[in-house]
Design a protein around this nucleic acid. Structure first.
Length: 558
RNA sequence: UGCGGGAUGGUGUAAGGGUAGCACAAAUGACUCUGACUCAUUGUGUGAGGGUUCGAAUCCUUCUCCCGCAGCCA
């Protein structure tokens, strides 16, 4: 594991005896699904604990019952486990509500917090602006006893939402807005998914988080950059409460990935407006979406390792993620043959009723890769794109008079073809070199092109979903020119192919298994697949240098 | 015009006074029963100006630009 500025800071704390162990936490709010940005945070939080032999707890940050729900907790845990991380304990900020409440009372008694009866609007007005100081609330200096009494009555549910709040008494003239007497408790008559109706006051993040961290024994509380301004408050809370071993907050830049969205609000919109099929749509950058797409935990973790950790805002190239996925799958995926856009080839000199087995490697990346049988017969399917009537230069696939090798089988030569009224090729007629079984020419002649194929009478039918990036622009969050994410949806982000022909081996594919469909890409079974209707998802295509060459040639001719 | 951060090739990230490196991307070539993989090669960078120093991405200084902050959200 490579180091970074956070791990260096931790090492320094250990050296200086600030802490004698390392403990971290991953604190998602249970109000949505985890996405690739969370994956980075997870790798950093759990990675820090792992690196220093400490523990990382999962803590659900559930201080706002109006936004959170148990339904997300299960999904969050599944995603973390799937990524391959193990937490120490599962905790909830709500586990600490009693203690946090006591902390609030302690602050009031110390004269460091007061109940304010200003309305939300008034509080905003009194806060001042970025350049002007705020002014003190008229309730700011009310007697401790009065605040204490009011806070207890707030707690007992005597007041309606918004009637009053508990505020820390810090400095209304602070240049840091967060220090201008921040609200630390508000009245919320709402049922909490864990504590039920026990509470009608709930602590704010800024108050609950440092207390939860420290109570739990967290040494290093790692979070994203937008909390940098909150750190003075984080430290103030812990100092005011006189905790002997306060946690230390360190911030890092969150992940941005081009062509993708990592805003919960916007992802929710995609789901609600049915732009995608759900949170686990394979085009989503959610962990569950990537899982369904066929991305592996190893690839995602490798990606998080490679992007590094820093404090500079940046946008990582989606191509890096794809590279990590391909690199991992290349090592693991069993090779198989599937024809997505089939066109029939009839090998005229091959015996009508004959079937034989040919063999292809399970995975050439494996040392001494085992082989497995594939049935071959007189009629096969090949890919539409692998035949051209009038091929351009450098095209070494099939065309009239040309020879190609059928992967693992025979060398064939195109003798003729048939087309329909639209000029579309319907049947290709070939002869095969019976001496070339396995794919080697008896006279040693070089055959440049090798095609994948599927025996027509052995083929099984399947639906294949071709996924591509969901957005047409690198930054779908860009709302200048009055546009929004809906304007950037890639119409071709899902192409469903219903007439795909697979070799029979694929009938036994299992959920979670990855295959390389030879010359096409990596694919996995979709969770909606059934015995009667096989559905495969394309995880990522193979790199295609022919596509580059041919499009370049086209540009030249244009 | 407040406070807090940040700036290194196209992208991301190292170098902590001593040869600006790595990865992805791009390009070229080799290899190839996957136009994949692999291998080789190439180009492109320290935001700007001043200073300290034998020597500066790194230290000092001035400036520029970018990001975040005015929820009873997290």
């Amino acid at each position: 594991m490579e180091s970074n500025f956070i791990y260096e800071a931790i090492e320094e704390d250990l050296r200086n005896g600030v802490y004698d162990k390392v403990q971290t936490r991953f604190p998602p709010e249970p109000n949505g699904y985890l996405h690739i940005g969370h994956a980075k945070a997870i790798c950093i939080d759990f990675g820090a604990a792992e690196k220093f032999g400490g523990v990382c707890n999962l803590r659900l940050d559930d201080t706002n019952p109006t936004k959170e729900d148990e339904e997300y907790v299960e999904a969050i845990m599944e995603d973390i486990k799937w990524l391959g991380f193990k937490w120490g304990k599962v905790l909830y900020a709500s586990d600490y509500f009693d203690q946090i409440h006591e902390c609030a009372i302690k602050l009031i008694k110390k004269g460091l917090a007061y109940v304010d009866e200003l309305s939300a609007d008034e509080i905003r007005e009194y806060r001042g602006t970025l350049t002007e100081p705020g002014k003190e609330s008229p309730y700011r200096n009310r007697p401790v006893e009065e605040s204490l009494d009011l806070f207890m009555r707030m707690t007992n549910g005597e007041f309606e939402n918004g009637k009053m709040v508990l505020r820390a008494k810090i400095d209304m003239a602070s240049p840091n807005l967060n220090m201008r007497d921040p609200v630390i408790y508000r009245i919320l008559h709402a049922r909490h998914h864990r504590t039920g109706d026990k509470w009608c006051v709930y602590p704010m993040y800024d108050f609950a988080h440092p207390i939860s961290d420290t109570l739990e024994g967290v040494t290093h509380s790692l979070c994203s950059l937008e909390f940098e301004d909150h750190r003075p408050l984080y430290n103030w809370v812990l100092e005011a409460l006189e905790f002997p071993k306060p946690s230390r907050q360190i911030e890092f830049a969150r992940l941005n990935l081009n062509y993708t969205l990592t805003s919960k609000r916007k992802c929710l919109r995609l789901v609600n407006e049915k732009i995608v099929s759900g949170w686990d749509d394979p085009r989503m950058s959610t962990i569950s979406g990537m899982r369904r797409r066929g991305y592996t935990p190893e690839a995602i973790r490798d990606f998080c390792e490679r992007i590094g950790v820093s404090k500079a805002n940046s946008v990582v190239d989606f191509a890096l993620l794809e590279h990590c996925v391909r690199a991992d799958l290349n090592k693991k995926a069993t090779r198989a043959m599937a024809v997505l856009k089939p066109v029939k080839v009839i090998i005229e000199n091959y015996p009508e009723d004959q079937t034989e087995e040919v063999f292809i490697e399970v995975n050439p990346e494996l040392e001494n890769s085992p082989v497995r049988p594939v049935p071959f017969s007189r009629e096969i399917y090949i890919e539409e794109d692998d035949f051209m009537i009038d091929p351009p230069k450098k095209y070494f696939r099939l065309s009239p008079g040309a020879e190609v090798r059928l992967k693992g089988a025979y060398i064939i030569k195109c003798t003729s073809y048939e087309t329909d009224e639209n000029g579309k090729v319907t049947i290709i007629r070939c002869t095969y070199d019976s001496q070339s079984k396995g794919g080697n020419a008896p006279d040693g002649r070089k055959i440049k092109g090798t095609l994948h194929w599927v025996s027509a009478k052995h083929a099984i039918d399947a639906q294949v979903n071709l996924y591509d990036r969901l957005f047409t622009v690198p930054n779908p969050s860009d709302e200048s020119d009055g546009k929004n994410l809906l304007d950037y949806i890639n119409k071709d982000s899902l192409v469903v192919l219903n007439n795909c022909k697979l070799e029979p081996y694929l009938k036994d594919a299992k959920l979670g298994e990855s295959f390389q469909f030879l010359r096409l890409g990596y694919f996995c079974l979709d969770k909606d697949s059934t015995e009667d209707k096989l559905i495969f998802n394309r995880t990522v295509s193979l790199k295609d240098s022919w596509a580059k060459i041919s499009s370049k040639e086209e540009n030249k001719n244009a």
